[in-house]
Each structure stands twice: as C-alpha cells, then as structure tokens.
Computed example of a mutant assay.
Amino acid sequence: MSALPNLLDLIEAATGGTLAMERFVHGELAVLRELATPGTPASGWDGTVEFADPPEAELRDSDRSTWTLAVGREFEEAARHAADVVALIDALREQAGVRRGTRLTRGVADGAEDVWAPVRGTF
C-alpha cells in the first residue's frame, strides 16, 4: 500500500485538527468571559490570548517563543486557509485515486463549509 494516502490524511488531520482545537479554545474562553462578566462584554479585552512555556521550561532547555491565539478576522482568515488546504488535499486524492482514511471524519453543519471537531481516540 502506498504511503500517499497516509501522508494526505496526516496533513488533513494536522490542518483540520489545529483549527478544531483553536475553535474549542475560543469556545472555552467565551464561557469563561461570560462567567467573569455575565451579560456584559469584557471591557478592554479584544480576546487575544498569548501562550508561553511555563517558567520550569527553562529546566528542560526549552526556548520556544510565545504565540498568540488568532481572534476575529485573523481567525476567520486562518479558517479559510485551512479549508483551502483541505480542498487541495481532496483534489490531490482525486488525482492520485486514493481515498480518505476511515479514521478521518468531517462533519458538515447545515450546508456550511467542512467543520472539524476534536474527538478523543480518533488517532
């Protein structure tokens, strides 16, 4: 069996999975924001969250730079790019005559673009 189907599945899982995790974090942050300020928008906060290694990471010789969770238009643009990547992967599958792996599933809500959801035990 060719490695191509597995490679395409991995690229799709990385692309769609990253988007799914970011959507999940956005949802969790919205719940926390509502708990912190019920019925009112969080004043002075644009939704930006910066992630960094904890201080003990220095003990592991970790020097990862911080990264920011995309919000608003930036996140919408990232979602469009992810959909473009997956459309390209679908086209490559069609050209190569290979199918998506059975462990990789996508849900489509109300005719909208593909929606990925994090599911435990999928991979």
Rank of each mutant, 00 (worst) to 15 (best):
A82S: 15
R23G: 06
F75W: 14
R103K: 06
E22R: 14
E77A: 15
E22A: 15
T122R: 14
D110L: 11
L7K: 05
E12V: 02
A112K: 05
A78S: 11
R103D: 12
G17N: 10
L59Y: 05
D46C: 01
G17W: 08
F51G: 08
G16M: 15
D84H: 04
E74A: 13
R33D: 07
G27A: 08
L32P: 01
A70W: 08
V25C: 07
R60V: 02
A57K: 11
S62H: 12
V98D: 01
T40R: 14
N6M: 05
A13M: 08
V31F: 14
A3P: 00
D90W: 03
A96Y: 01
D84W: 00
T68Y: 00
G39T: 07
R23Q: 13
A83Q: 10
R99V: 09
G47I: 01
T122H: 02
A82L: 04
M1L: 03
L19V: 11
T18F: 09
L32W: 07
G39I: 03
A3E: 12
R33C: 04
R103Y: 13
H26F: 04
I11M: 12
E77P: 00
E94G: 01
A78C: 02
G16Q: 07
G107Q: 13
V108K: 08
R80T: 11
P55G: 03
P5R: 01
H81E: 09
L10T: 07
D114I: 03
L35H: 10
L10I: 04
T15P: 06
A79C: 05
A117R: 09
A20F: 04
V86G: 07
T66E: 13
R106V: 13
R80F: 06
L7S: 04
E113V: 04
P55Q: 09
T40K: 15
A91N: 11
G39E: 11
A79G: 00
L32R: 12
D9R: 04
D84R: 09
S2W: 01
A20L: 09
T66N: 11
V119Y: 01
G121R: 09
G16E: 12
D63Q: 11
T40F: 04
E58C: 00
G17K: 09
A20I: 03
M21H: 12
G111F: 06
A57T: 14
L4G: 02
